[in-house]
């Protein structure tokens, strides 16, 4: 295996893909979004509950590659319990990481905030896989819009 492969499939990613967090949909949710990656048919349905401007819970069901599944699992861990402004900030930081072409953000504060999501740094080298890593974040943003919580905040 080459080093870029090892960088892409870090153990953190493989672990999240194997034992994803937040899986399983509820009967209802404040906001729900279904997103597909049309190039490979990956899908996610993501539900979000928001209480007093804080993400109360994220639940999801999906099928897809290890990058997409692990990314949604990490997203779950990062955003539950966070206020909407911080969630949007995390989403923006993660997008910036994906656009760094594998170089990382060179920003210690950002690295601290992203936690396990730093493991996805190597994904940025593979432009075809960036969409996989962003699938869950796209769904979260859409679900938050549908929840109407941003207008209430």
């Amino acid at each position: 295996m080459t080093s870029s492969m090892e960088q892409l499939y870090q153990q953190v990613i493989l672990d999240h893909a194997k034992f994803p967090h937040g899986r399983g949909l509820g009967a209802r949710a404040d906001g729900q979004s279904h997103q597909v990656n049309p190039t490979c048919g990956d899908e996610v349905t993501l539900q979000v509950d928001v209480a007093s401007g804080v993400v109360d819970d994220v639940r999801w069901e999906g099928q897809g590659c290890s990058i997409s599944q692990a990314s949604i699992s990490v997203l779950h861990d990062l955003v539950v319990g966070q206020d909407l402004a911080h969630v949007d900030h995390l989403a923006e930081t993660f997008r910036a990481l994906m656009q760094s072409r594998g170089a990382g953000l060179d920003d210690e504060a950002a690295e601290d905030e992203l936690g396990d999501a730093n493991a996805f740094t190597g994904v940025g080298k593979f432009s075809a896989r960036v969409k996989c890593a962003l699938l869950g974040w796209t769904a979260l943003n859409d679900a938050l819009i549908k929840s109407g919580a941003r207008e209430d905040a």
């Binding site: 990956d42 590659c65 990058i67 896989r129 996989c132």
Partner: peptide
Amino acid sequence: VHAHDVGQ
């Protein structure tokens, strides 16, 4: 293993 990962 998902096809995308196989391809990688």
